[in-house]
């Protein structure tokens, strides 16, 4: 599909205006929730179970991916009370390695596709990229939207592309990355969320992790509200995945608070909420060990994979 039809170009997406000042206030208020003691420990474990443990480097090797998969299963030596992470997220060429390494575990393998991270390739290439990753065994596909088309106002084309990729996914679940750091305004974040959900996303995801800002609380809140509206309208529960820059336990707990108060407890599980991260688990582990032993341990007591 080289050009989008006039019809789809004019697809009517109802604007849901967002007030940035109001969003900031709500974010600030949610950040004042006090999460202590048992609710902190439970919350941190819950967050671990939602992590998409990620490595997306040009320098990734099969060995490195295998290491990461081991970490995904055994987060910290000597602790048996910890959950496994939800998924491991890799480039398409590493999917097979990850599937092998995770055999026999419930951990999913997610692959970034569609010319990640820029999306600057023709749709045919993007679809082939997707089919390849699915063929290698990916359970989940993390695609990027075409920000250029979106910012130009060609919403129909963005929607069509998502729908095509969804088809190419087959059984695999589709996460649609909006790359909010390139969208500029919260109004656009909201519109892109609506388009992605209408076009067939199973999850909407903030960022690739390659661009800053990434998963700011403001962006997450706007996307959660979009999911809430979509659910009310269609009865379909769409998942949410903030990714990029979520490096500490406090930020993770804050995300859980936002999900709980905006979407409700139904969304507080890895089927509907994921956190894309690479460094986050170690900070959470540090906090959990502190809660267990009463003292903080240095970074060298936690494995870096």
């Amino acid at each position: 599909m080289s050009t989008s039809s006039t019809l789809s170009r004019r697809l009517p997406f109802q604007a849901h205006p967002v007030d940035e000042v109001g969003i900031k206030e709500r974010v600030a208020r949610l950040a004042t929730r006090s999460i202590k003691k048992s609710s902190k420990v439970e919350g941190l474990k819950l967050a671990l179970s939602m992590v998409d443990l990620t490595t997306l480097e040009g320098a990734d090797t099969p060995g490195r991916v295998r290491q990461l998969c081991t970490k995904a299963v055994h987060l910290h030596s000597g602790r048996t009370d910890l959950p496994m992470v939800a998924a491991v997220c890799v480039y398409p060429t590493m999917v097979r390695v990850a599937r092998e390494a995770l055999k026999g575990t419930p951990i999913k393998v997610a692959a970034v596709a569609t010319a990640f991270p820029s999306g600057m390739n023709p749709l045919t290439v993007k679809l082939e990229d997707t089919r390849y990753a699915v063929g290698e065994g990916a359970h989940e596909i993390d695609m990027v939207i075409s920000r250029g088309d979106f910012l130009r106002g060609d919403y129909g084309r963005v929607a069509d592309e998502i729908a095509e990729v969804k088809k190419a996914c087959g059984e695999a679940h589709l996460k649609v990355i909006l790359e909010t750091g390139e969208l500029g305004t919260l109004d656009r974040v909201r519109l892109a969320s609506d388009i992605a959900m209408e076009a067939g996303a199973d999850f909407i995801k903030t960022s690739t992790g390659k661009i800053q800002p990434a998963a700011t609380p403001e962006v997450v809140l706007v996307m959660l509200q979009a999911i809430s509206d979509f659910y009310r309208k269609t009865g379909r529960k769409i998942g949410m995945k903030p990714a990029g820059g979520i490096a500490n336990a406090k930020a993770a707990l804050n995300l859980l608070v936002m999900v709980r108060e905006v979407l409700g407890p139904d969304w507080l599980n890895p089927d509907l909420f994921r956190i894309g991260a690479s460094k986050l688990p170690n900070d959470i582990l540090m906090q959990l060990e502190k809660e267990r032993t009463g003292v903080y341990q240095g970074g060298d007591y936690f494995s870096n994979d």
């Binding site: 999460i35 609710s39 919350g43 819950l46 179970s49 419930p106 998942g239 859980l256 507080l268």
Partner: peptide, 18 residues
């Protein structure tokens, strides 16, 4: 989506913080 893990989160709440 198929269940990937327990749904321990559904009853996660805030402990008293006086």
């Amino acid at each position: 989506m198929t269940k990937t893990s327990t749904t321990i989160g559904s009853d996660w709440g805030y402990a008293p913080a006086p």
